[in-house]
Amino acid sequence: MQPVARPLAPTYQERRWELPPDAVVHHGTVDDAVRVLAGRTITALTGAGVSTDSGIPDYRGPDSPPRNPMTYEQFVSDEDFRRHYWARNHVGWQHVRRTHPNAGHRALARLEERGVVHGVITQNVDLLHEEAGSRNVIDLHGRYDRVVCLQCGRVISRAHLAERLDALNPGFLKSVLQGGTTVADVEIAPDADAVVEQTSHFRPAPCEFCGGVLKPEIVYFGENVPRERVERAYAMVDAADALLVAGSSLTVMSGLRFVRHAAKREKPIVIVNRGETRGDPLATVKVDAGVTETLTELVERL
């Protein structure tokens, strides 16, 4: 078979879309999903919807508020944007680091343990798949617990940076959480961003080795996913017999390209998500249902 030509690192960005009126969507049930997946090895592609039951809101779910994530260009080119981001992140990461895997994460880990799931490609940065016990995981968009210097390339832990930010901004967290407000009460986004209005007085920390700009080791909108990571993800799709998409609207090409790749390879595709996804016309079966309960049922039946 001739290799399928594919773009290596399309830009991770928002795109508006609607299903064409004549799109054929094969809606089905968990029974239909089991019939498609039974006896096959599976690569799972997960999105923010798999972590909502862990207390991390998604970007585009039916009940999600409108969000306007910061772009890579804004972050690298404007000191005020960076100050605003780090102030909000300093609150938001406190919430994400306290979250725990839910039954959906554990279901995928159990399926991997049994040899049913070959691996997980996740668009999430929360590391909950790893915490649940999944071993073969590709964190497509990076991970929230590490920070990289854009000048010297040094990588430090987010926990270490938190200590430095606390020292530079004494009383900041207390001022945000005054009046009995807790971190859990603040609106949080999946990338550990938090809704904090007053950030002009916040002092970001430079790299302690070279004085350069620090950035979360997360792929921003408008930034490319590293080529090597994309290649590993394509290989993971190729190594399995079927693709299971869980909790992703596939709005951005960063995730949709793997669904398109599986379709070109004529691999069965099962999508589990509440609401439409951009990959629905390519699905063998689309299950419009909650991710956690569906994955939990699949682990009992596959």
Rank of each mutant, 00 (worst) to 15 (best):
N224L: 14
R158K: 12
R60T: 06
H84P: 00
A283K: 01
L214T: 07
H95N: 13
P3M: 07
C210W: 09
I56K: 08
V272H: 09
N169P: 11
R88S: 03
E217I: 00
E73H: 13
G179A: 05
V30I: 14
V120Y: 00
T11V: 15
S134P: 04
E293S: 09
A283T: 02
C152L: 09
H129E: 08
L37A: 00
H160R: 13
R265W: 06
C207L: 09
D241P: 01
Q94N: 12
T41L: 09
G28S: 03
L302T: 07
E297I: 05
T99I: 12
E208C: 05
G222D: 03
S254L: 03
S200Q: 13
G180H: 07
C210Q: 10
S249M: 06
V148A: 08
I56M: 06
L161P: 04
F258M: 02
A132M: 07
R67A: 14
H201W: 06
E18K: 06
N102V: 12
R154M: 07
E197G: 09
A5W: 12
N169S: 07
H100I: 12
G119A: 05
A48T: 12
I269E: 00
P69M: 02
A262T: 00
A5C: 10
V50L: 15
L108A: 09
A107S: 14
V270H: 02
L165D: 05
A9E: 12
H141P: 07
A38K: 15
V287C: 03
D241V: 02
V76P: 03
T182A: 14
T41V: 04
G153W: 11
E14D: 13
P170M: 03
P3D: 11
A87R: 00
R232A: 15
